[in-house]
Design a protein around this nucleic acid. Structure first.
Length: 757
DNA sequence: CTGACTCAGGAGTAT
DNA sequence: ACTCCTGAGTCAGCC
């Protein structure tokens, strides 16, 4: 990288500044970033609190600056003047004191502390706390830390479903972790993220196994891996199956997961990670009509359809005790995937073929008569007892990485059933289902995405204001649309670049020696770069490379490595591969979305701009596009960026050996995308983001100069706005006058903090 | 593109 | 404790 020529901040015209300013709330809004996570400091347990207090004092002594990280809020000084710093310190100390006082007052203490632990910026009370008072108050409470404790101990008696209460009891009944109830939506999201993490882990395991086999094959005789091989495998797997059943194992032929999705389900079950392990009638909280699943396994882990294989999910006799007035089995959900030759799907009116008698392999036709039992009986019982059934439709979808998308289409009533001779001449049971009224319109008759239709070409785009904001820089053009302004204007005031420009007064460290792998890095035990990542590659190969989970730092292969550009450990270096669009959003300014499906863990883009010394940017008070490189801020739980724990940071220090923990607490460098930058400068903040920030080192190993790359935190359907958490703590931003600055948040998330800062 | 094959939890049944 | 049921997902092999 490196382009010495530099556009100075001052070169921004006043118009441009104004333009940026107006966007503030929106796009850049957050760019400013958070002086430190207040929340984190308000740590749990008394001892820790003491420590924090001490730390605070220590910092004050040192005249420590606020630890800024990433984007800076508009109109504020990223690094504050000494006067403001003093004021901030004083305020913090006051906070600490107040907190201690509150804690000393006794009750509620425990709950408070623990709850903060949920993560600083804490998803605010949702149904419970959220409705207690006006939003502002809620924020205040949040900001003041201790005070909120009092509010939180309130029993959410009036709020939430029984389930919520139940889980609350489960979580906090033992006085251990009375947490603020997250929105159901957030819980679903969290569960899916955990599932994806497990999934990618098992994908990696599987890839390792394949690589090993390949290596062994190429080492040994060139016996083509052919039928004989697969037969051997078959034998092996059969053996292992019987072995496992018998409970002993010969070990040698044990086959690893060919189905990482299923392995991930097992893992989720083992770790009690499944969201609603008990089956239930009707809607599942947090999953609205139109929700999209990207595999059958996803439905299992959120408790939406409890088997990855069966079409009909039903409650069996085991539920008799709990619901004594019902006759079981009773169906709760069905998947329409067009597997049955006799299915008819007319959106609101469905004729569903019962289960059984199906040729599981081969031509997938009926080969036996169906019987009125199991799922079939369960559907019949639904008619008699008027129980609605969740209907999920499976669609082939080229845009989905897995080739299939499952959409929740709402509750249906089973109206009638009958038996008839099917197309193949065998008896099949048919069930007529009718969609219940009062639900959102069906969006999935033919397809696909609740957000709208993806354009096929630039000419189809409504409100096009710029065909390619990159001016040909990126391999894939990025159009801009504006259906908000009148007259519509394109984004302006910046020059598009796709690689970092380095300020004149910065000398990048020399490139590290790199690994000696040839062609591509395969064996993580041999590859030096993999060693830095804890002896494993951070990515899997699947889908063009996906990051398995957020890490403090990702070490990629660099210019001096022996591997080629296709190496699995260079995933973030391949540029933008999705068709992105910049669009004008009401109230939010410019925003970014993708026309393509983005699988979780896939790199979306790097934050590009001018690499500058942070101290040199002190005067750029109106620049909203500054991203402080602070690798001590990292992802914790994907929900946002959070101050890394002491332990974690020391681990990393061990790793890297030479990094001075103390020093790196203050970001020395920043990326300024004010005048020049790439698509990342348009990405908005959200309190429930679908991207996360990941520091990546590839050409050198200086953590202070890490690259900042945005990765997908979830499976992101086409046309969903891309967002990441700017990570501000509330009341953490001060204006030039020393007063707390506030910025409303318009992200619209269920757990929105209402204020960006 | 097609066919072959595996996968694993839950329901139901036998002991 | 055991068997059976179920169809998505994967991959080799074919054209």
């Amino acid at each position: 990288m490196v382009v010495p020529s530099l556009q100075c901040m001052d070169s921004l015209s006043s118009d441009e500044l104004k333009a940026n300013g107006s966007e503030v709330v929106a796009s850049s809004a957050g760019r400013g970033k958070s002086p430190k996570s207040e929340g984190k400091e308000e740590g749990p347990g008394g001892g820790k609190r003491e420590k924090e207090k001490e730390k605070e004092k220590e910092k004050a002594k040192k005249g420590g600056e606020p630890e800024c990280c990433s984007p800076r809020p508009p109109g504020t000084q990223r690094r504050c003047s000494a006067r403001i710093q003093t004021k901030q310190r004083a305020e913090k100390e006051l906070l600490v004191r107040r907190r201690v006082e509150l804690l000393d007052n006794g009750d509620g203490v425990t709950s408070t502390g623990k709850r903060r632990n949920v993560g600083g910026r804490g998803k605010s009370g949702g149904e419970s706390a959220g409705k207690e008072g006006p939003e502002v108050e809620e924020s205040e409470v949040e900001a003041v830390g201790g005070a909120e404790i009092v509010g939180i101990s309130v029993e959410p008696a009036s709020a939430g479903s029984g389930v919520q209460r139940e889980s609350q009891v489960a979580a906090g009944g033992d006085n251990v972790a009375p947490m603020v109830e997250k929105s159901d939506f957030a819980k679903v999201k969290e569960t899916l993220r955990l599932f994806n993490k497990h999934y990618l882990h098992f994908v990696q395991e599987e890839e390792k196994r394949c690589n090993k086999e390949k290596a062994e094959n190429s080492k040994g005789s060139q016996k083509p891996k052919s039928k004989s091989k697969s037969k051997e495998q078959q034998k092996g797997s059969k053996q292992s199956k019987t072995n496992s059943k018998k409970g002993n194992s010969t070990g040698d032929t044990k086959k690893l997961a060919m189905r990482p999705d299923l392995k991930a389900i097992t893992k989720m079950l083992e770790t009690n990670g499944v969201l609603h392990p008990k089956k239930r009638f009707g809607n599942i909280p947090g999953i609205n009509v139109g929700h999209q699943f990207y595999s059958r396994a996803e439905m299992v882990v959120v408790g939406f359809h409890s088997h990855w294989l069966n079409g009909i999910d039903y409650m069996g006799q085991a539920y008799r005790k709990e619901y004594s007035n019902y006759t079981f089995p009773v169906a709760v959900a069905i998947v329409l995937s067009g597997m049955y030759e006799d299915d008819q799907d007319n959106a609101d009116d469905v004729v569903y073929t019962g289960q059984g008698g199906h040729n599981l392999t081969g031509d997938k036709r009926q080969i036996r008569d169906q019987v009125l039992e199991r799922g079939n009986l369960a559907l019949k019982n639904c008619i008699d007892q008027n129980v609605p059934v969740r209907v999920i439709r499976g669609h082939e979808s080229r845009t989905s990485y897995c080739g299939k998308v499952y959409t929740y289409d709402g509750l249906y009533k089973v109206v009638t059933y009958w038996a008839e001779k099917g197309i193949s001449g065998y008896t099949v049971f048919k069930f007529r289902l009718r969609r219940m009224p009062g639900q959102p319109m069906l969006t999935t008759n033919q397809v696909q995405f609740v957000y709208g239709r993806v354009p096929n070409s630039v000419s189809e785009i409504r409100g096009l204001v710029c065909k390619d904001i990159t001016g040909g820089e990126e391999a894939i053009p990025i159009p801009a649309t504006n259906l908000v302004d009148d007259p519509p204007v394109p984004p302006s005031g910046f020059t598009y670049i796709k690689t970092i420009q380095v300020s004149k007064n910065i000398i990048l460290p020399a490139a590290s020696t790199g690994c000696k792998c040839r062609g591509g890095c395969i064996d993580p035990r041999i590859c030096l770069c993999a060693t830095l990542n804890g002896s494993d590659f951070p990515y899997v190969q699947r889908d063009g490379g996906r990051l398995i989970e957020a890490k403090d730092v990702v070490y990629e292969c660099g210019p001096n490595c022996g591997c080629g550009p296709d190496c699995v450990n260079r995933v973030s270096q391949r540029g933008i591969k999705y068709r992105l669009e910049v669009f004008r959003a009401p109230r939010k300014g410019w925003a970014v979305r993708s026309w393509d499906f983005i699988p979780s863990g896939a790199p979306v883009c790097e934050y590009i701009g001018i690499l500058n010394r942070a101290e040199d940017m002190d005067n750029a008070s109106e620049n909203n596009f500054i991203f402080d490189i602070d690798c001590l801020q990292t992802m914790r739980g994907l929900g946002g960026r959070e101050r890394r724990s002491r332990d974690a940071s020391s681990e990393t220090v061990d790793h890297m050996g030479k990094h001075d923990d103390q020093k790196s607490e203050i970001p020395e460098y920043c990326i300024d995308a004010g005048s020049v930058g790439n698509i990342a400068r348009f990405i908005n903040h959200s309190c429930e983001p679908n991207l996360f920030v990941q520091c990546v080192l590839s050409s050198h190993q200086d953590i202070k100069l890490a690259r900042v790359v945005l990765f997908a935190a979830d499976n992101i359907p086409p046309l969903q706005e891309l967002t990441y958490d700017y990570g501000y703590a509330l009341d953490s931003v001060f204006g030039p006058d020393g007063k707390v600055k506030r910025m409303p948040c318009y992200c619209g998330a269920a757990d929105c903090r209402k204020r960006l800062f």
